[in-house]
Design a protein around this nucleic acid. Structure first.
Lengths: 170, 170
DNA sequence: GACTAACGTTAGTGGCACTAACGTTAGTCA
DNA sequence: TGACTAACGTTAGTGCCACTAACGTTAGTC
C-alpha cells in the first residue's frame, strides 16, 4: 500500500492538514480564512470569482468563508462600480493583522511538518510538487459546467493582477 | 501561497484524490474499499481493530466500509474462536479479483498523476514523503482517547503479521 | 469479583471539494 | 432594440475522509 505515490501523498497531506487545522483552530480560524487573507494581502483586492480562481476555492464555499471573515471585520465587500455583478473584496487593517498571525502559525506548522528534511530536501520536495501541480494545470475552476471547448477565449476586462501592490495600502 | 509546502502538499493530494476517486467511482468503489482489500490481500486476515491500524481507517468508518464489502461478497467476517470480541475479516476469491481490478485502476492513476516526473524523480518524491510519514510516525490510531501515558505497553496476543503469507490462500 | 482495556457498533461532526439551480447584470450580435 | 449567452454572487445540498463520543460486550488483571 505504501508503495503507491498517491497513498503517500494523501496520507502526508492528511497529516499536514491535521497540523494546519489544529494550528488554525487554536486561533478560531480555518484553512479557507488563511487562504483568502493571504491571497488578498499578496495579490490585492479582487472580485469573488477572481478570488475563487486564485485560491482554488469554489465560489459556493467562498460565500460562506467571506461572510465569516466579513462579520469578523477582516475583509470588506463593496460593489464594483464598473460592474454591478461584482463585489470587490478587500482586506481591512484588522484582516492584515489576522493574516500575519495566521501566516505565522502556518509557518510554524511547516517546520514541524518538514522537520526530518534538510533545506535542500525541502526545496526538492516543493519543486517536485510544484511540477506536478503545473502539469495537470488546474486550469480555471469552473463555476458551473463549462462547454468543453469554450475555455477562456474572450478574457474581456478580466482582473489583471494589480500589477504590483496597487491598492494594497487598504 | 504556493510557497507553503503544506499548500503544495494538500493541493497535489487533492488532485490525486480527485483522480483516484474518479477512477474508483467508475467501478463503483471508493478509496476505503481499495485500502481494505489491498491490506487484506497483502497482509492476510485480521481483526477489524488490526485492520484499522494497518489501513489508517477509523474503526467507526471501517464498520460501514466492511458492511459494503461484505454485502458485495468481497470479504467475510467470522467470529474469532480465540476471542469472542473479535471478528476475523478475510478476503474472498471475488474480493481478490476486485482487489486486483482496483489495483489496476489505482496504478493507472499513479501514472497519470506522476506523468511529468522521471523514474528517479518519482522515487525521490516517494522517498521524501515516506520519510515525512515515518517521522511523525502516525503511531497507532486510537480507538478512543488514550490515557496519554498508556501507549502500547502490554501487547498481549496482538496480531503479529502472518509472518509470511500465512492464510493468504483464502 | 471489581477494574481496566480492547472489541465492534452506532451516531454524529467538521473540513474540503464539488454539483445544481436561481436571479441578476454584462457583453454580443442579429 | 431585443434575443442570446455568459459571468456574477448566492443558496442548498452531496460525498469522501478524518475524527469524537458513547454503548454494550468480552478478556485479561489484581
Amino acid at each position: 500500500m505504501d508503495h503507491l505515490p498517491s497513498w503517500l501523498l494523501t496520507q502526508t497531506a492528511a497529516h499536514a492538514h491535521r497540523l494546519v487545522t489544529e494550528g488554525f483552530a487554536a486561533a478560531g480560524a480555518k484553512g479557507y480564512h488563511y487562504r483568502l487573507l493571504a491571497s488578498l494581502i499578496a495579490d490585492g483586492p479582487a472580485s469573488q470569482a477572481a478570488l475563487g480562481r486564485r485560491t482554488a476555492i469554489y465560489l459556493s464555499d467562498l460565500v460562506g468563508a467571506l461572510n465569516e471573515l466579513e462579520s469578523a471585520g477582516f475583509v470588506e465587500r463593496s460593489p464594483d462600480p464598473a460592474d454591478k455583478r461584482r463585489n470587490v473584496v478587500a482586506v481591512t487593517a484588522a484582516g492584515r493583522e489576522r493574516g500575519a498571525e495566521l501566516a505565522a502559525r502556518a509557518a510554524a506548522v511547516q517546520d514541524e511538518l518538514l522537520a526530518p528534511l534538510s533545506a535542500e530536501e525541502r526545496e526538492q520536495l516543493a519543486g517536485l510538487l510544484r511540477r506536478l501541480l503545473e502539469h495537470h494545470a488546474l486550469p480555471v475552476r469552473p463555476a458551473r459546467h463549462e462547454p468543453p471547448g469554450a475555455a477562456r477565449v474572450s478574457v474581456r476586462n478580466e482582473e489583471r493582477p494589480p500589477s504590483a501592490d496597487g491598492d494594497l495600502s487598504a
